[in-house]
Design a binder for these strands. Structure first.
Length: 299
DNA sequence: AATTCGCCCTGTCGGC
DNA sequence: TGCCGACAGGGCGAAT
């Protein structure tokens, strides 16, 4: 599922191709993915506007256009791909930045393509999302940070100064498991299930540990681990566990480098113990019973 | 007030 | 081979 490193990768790869281009026409083929306005008003609101900048906030992709912002959340299975003008539609193949390539879990326009941005010059940005958990919305002017979905977001983990954050934002008395805290977008923006499990492993913290029971040293270790696993994810251009693809249709390289996520029942890469799979905060969770010992009970 | 639960959705997989 | 239920989960609104 696209989390901060995946969204960051998409934004970085998309920006040089899309920034400065004008949207000739937009096609929204699944109206329920659009929030906050009637679907018939959407395409006319985009037509003719130039893309000035593309950026990321949490897991949201923000297209700053002339006079408004187009915001996309990829949900679980969303893909944003870019195709240049010169590649024809060819069944079984997909057009991409790197050329015409055989379709391998990557698709040209199909029944799961819900938004098409036709750029002046013939390039296209495609939003494809099989499970349709993604969201699309428009915010007038430059007020997108104040949109209800974005205004509730917490700190950007990679810009985080750990020490000040400790005092400011750590809920001192929370009984929630620390994994639930990591998944809470109002705590840190952009951490999802994959990188939460990876960060907990890296810092040696059991996912069920109550937030209030974390010692300061553990909190620092955890936040540093969050930053480290996110940076590693970006360096490897994202985790293609299932549907995530880069804008050119290719896969990220981080999945094979994960320590715990998706590895339940397999041996820990650090100590060899069998990794344990459970449910924490309503999410599938993998941890190492040796490297991440169960929290000591304290009254 | 803080947490948890139920729901949205569809491709994939295991069992029979 | 084919059918079917279970499962995956981000984020929101309802329930506890």
């Amino acid at each position: 599922m696209p989390e901060l490193p995946e969204v960051e990768t998409i934004v970085r790869m998309l920006a040089p191709h899309a920034a400065g281009k004008r949207i000739d026409a937009a096609e929204l083929t699944l109206p329920r993915m659009l929030l906050g306005m009637p679907a018939r008003e959407f395409a006319p609101a985009l037509a003719g506007r130039a893309i000035e900048r593309i950026l990321r906030r949490g897991k949201y992709i923000v297209f700053e256009l002339e006079g408004c912002a187009l915001i996309i959340h990829l949900g679980m299975t969303g893909q944003l791909t870019w195709s240049p003008a010169e590649y024809a539609e060819t069944p079984g193949f997909v057009r991409s930045i790197t050329g015409l390539q055989r379709s391998k879990g990557v698709h040209p326009v199909d029944k799961h393509t819900h938004l098409i941005l036709n750029l002046a010059g013939g390039e296209r940005i495609l939003f494809r999302d099989p499970r349709t958990f993604g969201k699309i919305f428009l915010v007038p002017g430059r007020a997108w940070p104040a949109h209800p979905r974005l205004s509730i977001l917490g700190a950007e983990p990679l810009e985080l100064k750990v020490k000040p954050f400790l005092k400011q934002a750590f809920p001192e008395d929370s009984a929630r498991p620390v994994k639930a805290l990591l998944l809470d977008q109002s705590f840190l923006a952009g951490v999802g299930n994959i990188y939460a499990d990876e960060a907990l492993f890296r810092s040696g913290i059991h996912p069920k540990t109550r937030s209030r029971d974390l010692r300061d040293g553990q909190r620092i270790a955890l936040l540093e681990a969050v930053k480290a696993v996110l940076r590693k994810g970006i360096r490897n251009s994202g985790t293609s566990f299932s549907d995530y693809r880069k804008p050119d249709g290719s896969e990220g390289n981080n999945y094979e480098r994960l320590k715990v996520y998706g590895r339940g029942g397999e041996p820990c890469r650090k100590c060899g113990s069998i990794l344990s799979k459970s449910v924490v905060a309503q999410r599938g969770t993998v941890h190492c019973p040796e490297c991440q010992p169960a929290p000591k009970r304290r009254k």
